[in-house]
Structures are given as C-alpha cells and as structure tokens.
Amino acid sequence: MAAAAAAGAGPEMVRGQVFDVGPRYTNLSYIGEGAYGMVCSAYDNVNKVRVAIKKISPFEHQTYCQRTLREIKILLRFRHENIIGINDIIRAPTIEQMKDVYIVQDLMETDLYKLLKTQHLSNDHICYFLYQILRGLKYIHSANVLHRDLKPSNLLLNTTCDLKICDFGLARVADPDHDHTGFLTEYVATRWYRAPEIMLNSKGYTKSIDIWSVGCILAEMLSNRPIFPGKHYLDQLNHILGILGSPSQEDLNCIINLKARNYLLSLPHKNKVPWNRLFPNADSKALDLLDKMLTFNPHKRIEVEQALAHPYLEQYYDPSDEPIAEAPFKFDMELDDLPKEKLKELIFEETARFQPGYRS
C-alpha cells in the first residue's frame, strides 16, 4: 500500500510507478496490472468513496492506442447498470505532455475469474450472474457493438453480487458484411471463450460470437473449470467437437473457408456428449439454455433477447427493466489503419471533457 500523499506533496508512487492523480484522489492501494497499465484503488475526496484507477501508458504502440481509444469512446457513450462506466479521466493539459491516461471507475471487490478459483456457486448465484451478463449484453448488442472478449476476468463483482462487464478494448461495431482481413492475426481474445466460426472463417462476425462466450462462462460457473481449455488453435476446435459432436452437413455448409471445411470433413465422426453427463448436478433449465448458447452453427445460436426470456431466468426476466441503447454506435473511421500519432490526438480530444474549465 502506498503511503497517503500529504496535501501538495506531488504524485504518489505505487510499486515504483508514478500515479499522478492528486489532489482529488489519494490513499492509493495496488490492485493489479494488465498488459499496459496498473490498477489501484484510491480515495475520492470529492465523492467520499474509494474508486478504481487504471493507469494506461499506450502511446508507444499502435495496438494499445487503438484499444484505449475504443474503450474510452464506447464506455463514455454507454450507460447501463451492468456495464462499468467511466467516472473521470485524468491526463496532462497538453498533448505533448500526455504520456499516461488515468481512467477512474467504480471500485468492484472482485471478478468472476477470482471468485470461481475459490468458491463453488449455488444455482441461485449462477442464475443471477447469468441474468446480469445477458442484461448488459442486450444493451451492448442493441448499440450494434460486439464485445468480443467476454470471459470471467472481464466480469466485475461486488459483495452485493452486482455484476458489471468491463474491458471493451477489443470491441467492434457489428459488421457481418465487412471482410476484416487479418482478423485472426489481430484477434487476441482469450482462445477458450472463442466461437468456432472465428477459427473457421475470417469473413465478418456477428453478435452470436458473444453468446458463445457467455455459454462458455455459464459452463464454467457450473463446474469451476473452463469447458474448452484448448492449448492452441486446432486443439481448441477438437475440444469443442469432442463435446458438441461432429457438425451436420448443414452446419458445414455455413463454413465459407474450404480449407477449414475440408479439415472438419477429414475428422472421424464424434457423438455429442449429453450435458447432464458433463454437469450431473446442474439445473435442467440451465443445461437447456447452455445447449442453445453453445450451438456450433452461429445462425442457430440463441440471441440475447431470447436467452433473457428463457425459463431458467424467469424469476428475473423483465423486458421493461432491460434497457437498450438510445442509438446504434458508430465509429467515424476504422481505427485499425491509423498511425499511433493520430490515435493519440483522438484520445486527447475524447478525454477533453474531463479537463478543468472544459467548454463543449
């Protein structure tokens, strides 16, 4: 834990890192770190609560700039109880001085990944967590956004079992017609939660990839272990087919990539493993919904509104309290091709509203 900075004593240090967030945020305490930044909790002297502050230093890398800009653009436009918001952003007053960006968010005690390492969940908890994931996802999908990296560590939890989806750095506007060349190379989302079509096709992607990830998360809540822990690309596919069985001819016809289709045709026939054999203690309604989410063919996979209306979630289902976005989200430009200098300018502009004396 960093010592509390005395008023006016300059930035606090946390594990050798400068955290320049005073005077409003003090009493910093280390939480963890990701690929390009550290997260601390801090005391907000204005709202009198502890908050989470993520320090991001992305400006050396085009990919990190892209992810940072995506996350900020999306989260500043989203407003939903099951999606983490941005409360404040701290950065230098000029673009030349801006080396880091500090993002202030609600402090959540833990995440689903940490929880599943230590606790076996009751059916009631599984049901409530799944409902909140789908409630947040309904809003995301209504904005025409794909999260693309749903996994237990991106689901934040607090002691009252509130759940918030975080990390929109890989999110995209849904565009089933656009052929994202190089899709697989830039697709760094965790393999275990990846839909089979991501490994088999490169053309376009749809909201059904997020539903697949939610199915993987439900299976993990039922058993405290990942359902498809593939060691590499082909191993991942083999794990999936080992449980779902061989795809039907109709399902194979959806695979545009001939090499991928021929690979699947070359494999020995596998039978589907019954879900109640894998999860003998699970609620039968939970397994019915799991089956509809972990469907090989993305066109037959359940959609988020149908999933919310499934009998497993009937005690929570309330369409009048499951809000959607006001308007579909649009990125003005494809960020993939922009140089990091341009992305830095866009991050600077996007964060201006939090600067003292800002006038829109």
Rank of each mutant, 00 (worst) to 15 (best):
Ala4Glu: 15
Ala4His: 14
Ala6Arg: 05
Ala6Met: 07
Ala7His: 10
Pro11Asp: 08
Arg15Glu: 09
Arg15Pro: 04
Gly22Gln: 11
Arg24Leu: 01
Tyr25Phe: 00
Ser29Met: 12
Ile31Arg: 14
Gly32Asp: 04
Gly34Asn: 07
Ala35Cys: 13
Tyr36Gln: 15
Met38Asp: 09
Cys40Asn: 15
Ser41Leu: 08
Tyr43Glu: 13
Asn45Lys: 02
Asn45Tyr: 02
Asn45Phe: 13
Lys48Leu: 06
Val49Arg: 08
Val51Arg: 15
Ala52Asp: 00
Pro58Asn: 15
Phe59Asp: 09
Thr63Met: 10
Tyr64Asn: 00
Cys65Met: 10
Thr68Arg: 05
Leu69Arg: 15
Arg70Ile: 08
Arg70Met: 02
Glu71Val: 01
Leu75Asp: 11
Leu76Ser: 14
Arg77Ile: 13
Phe78Cys: 11
Ile83Met: 09
Asn87Arg: 14
Asp88His: 10
Arg91Ala: 14
Pro93Cys: 13
Met98His: 08
Tyr102Gln: 08
Tyr102Arg: 06
Val104Tyr: 06
Val104Glu: 05
Gln105Tyr: 07
Asp106Leu: 15
Tyr113Ser: 11
Lys114Val: 05
Leu115Thr: 14
Leu116Trp: 10
Thr118Ile: 08
Thr118Tyr: 15
Leu121Cys: 08
Asn123Arg: 09
His125Val: 05
His125Ser: 02
Arg135Gly: 12
Leu137Met: 06
His141Phe: 11
Ala143Asn: 12
Asn154Arg: 02
Thr160Asn: 12
Cys161Gln: 05
Asp162Ile: 14
Lys164Gly: 04
Ile165Glu: 04
Leu170Trp: 06
Leu170Gln: 02
Ala171Met: 06
Ala174Leu: 11
Asp175Pro: 11
Asp175Tyr: 00
Pro176Gln: 00
His178Leu: 00
His178Ser: 05
Asp179Phe: 11
Thr181His: 08
Gly182Leu: 03
Leu184Met: 00
Glu186Met: 15
Arg194Tyr: 02
Ile198Trp: 03
Ser202Leu: 02
Thr206Cys: 02
Ser208Ile: 13
Ile209Trp: 02
Ile209Val: 05
Trp212Thr: 03
Ser213Leu: 04
Val214Asn: 01
Val214His: 01
Ala219His: 03
Glu220Cys: 03
Ser223His: 11
Asn224Pro: 12
Asn224Asp: 09
Arg225Gly: 09
Gly230Ala: 10
His232Ile: 11
Tyr233Thr: 01
Tyr233Trp: 08
Leu234Ala: 08
Asn238Ile: 00
Asn238Ala: 10
Ser246Asp: 15
Pro247Ile: 14
Ser248Gln: 09
Ser248Thr: 02
Glu250Trp: 15
Asn253Asp: 15
Leu258Gln: 00
Ala260Asn: 10
Ala260Pro: 12
Asn262His: 10
Asn262Trp: 10
Asn262Tyr: 01
Leu264Tyr: 08
Leu267Asp: 14
Leu267Gly: 09
Pro268Trp: 06
Asn271Glu: 06
Trp275Tyr: 08
Arg277Leu: 06
Arg277Thr: 09
Leu278Thr: 05
Phe279Cys: 09
Ala282Tyr: 14
Lys285Asp: 13
Leu290Tyr: 02
Leu294Pro: 04
Thr295Cys: 10
Asn297Leu: 07
Ile302Leu: 02
Glu303Trp: 13
Glu303Ile: 15
Glu303Thr: 14
Val304Cys: 11
Pro311Thr: 01
Pro319Ile: 10
Glu326Ile: 15
Ala327Glu: 09
Glu334Phe: 15
Asp336Pro: 15
Asp337Asn: 01
Asp337Pro: 11
Lys340Ser: 13
Lys342Ile: 00
Lys342Ser: 14
Glu345Ala: 15
Leu346Pro: 03
Glu350Gly: 14
Glu350Ile: 15
Glu350Lys: 01
Thr351Asp: 13
Arg353Gly: 04
Gln355Phe: 15
Tyr358Asp: 08
Arg359Thr: 09
